[in-house]
């Protein structure tokens, strides 16, 4: 009890633990652990044979955090910015530091706009988005959908039912938007 000085005895002695658990205590010396001390100056240990890396070519303007003094010498080139989401994201990077809420909220907005842009664009391709196959729900049969979820305690059942709505919500919304726009167009053409 913490009301007195001694630490409670562990239920098992070191000998018992050593017998029960392979390797018990082999890393007991806190000084002899790979990430101790946290910072260990040893630039020769990494395999890098440069003081500063060669610079990767910037083939198109690469967005970057304004907390960086320069474009990093190496960077990912996957999914360059495009469309309206690109404009929003570029603004988030160019205007606001990582310390600003606006930076992240604009990036979150960019993500939602990106999703809508891409879903709409997919309908003009041979492989339109398919929420049934892409959510993986077809795996349910064969992976014990009932017994995995029910008859046991699981905290996530309380909100799992929301997931289909989160997935379907944007579809329903864009369906309505498309219907509204289409009916206006039809009215104009007829009118």
């Amino acid at each position: 009890m913490p009301y007195t000085a001694q630490k409670p005895e562990p239920p098992e002695s070191p000998d018992e633990l050593r017998a029960r658990i392979p390797g018990w205590g082999v890393d007991s010396d806190p000084a002899d652990r790979p990430s101790v001390p946290k910072e260990r100056f040893d630039p020769g240990a990494t395999g890098a044979h440069w003081e500063f890396p060669d610079r990767q070519e910037e083939l198109r303007p690469r967005e970057r955090s304004i907390e960086h003094a320069m474009l990093t010498p190496v960077f990912g080139t996957a999914q360059p910015l495009t469309g309206l989401s690109g404009v929003i994201r570029r603004r988030a990077y160019a205007r606001y530091s990582e310390g600003r809420l606006a930076h992240w909220l604009l990036l979150v907005l960019g993500d939602r706009v990106d999703a809508i842009e891409n879903h709409l664009a997919s309908f003009a391709t041979l492989r339109p988005d398919n929420p049934i196959t892409e959510t993986g729900v077809l795996s349910e049969p064969g992976h014990r959908p009932i017994s995995s979820r029910f008859g046991k305690k699981r905290a996530d059942l309380k909100h799992m039912w929301m997931d289909p709505f989160l997935v379907a919500g944007p579809w329903i919304a864009s369906g309505i938007a498309v219907a509204v726009v289409a009916s206006r167009v039809v009215k104009r053409v007829r009118g």
Binding site: S35, K38, F41, P43, T46, P53
Partner: peptide, 20 residues
């Protein structure tokens, strides 16, 4: 990168040269 301020000190997950 293996050579920035952080990599030189073993903080590989905090590299400063790879994430603009």
């Amino acid at each position: 990168c293996g050579s920035c301020y952080f990599c030189a000190r073993g903080l590989y997950s905090n590299c400063h040269n790879v994430n603009p």
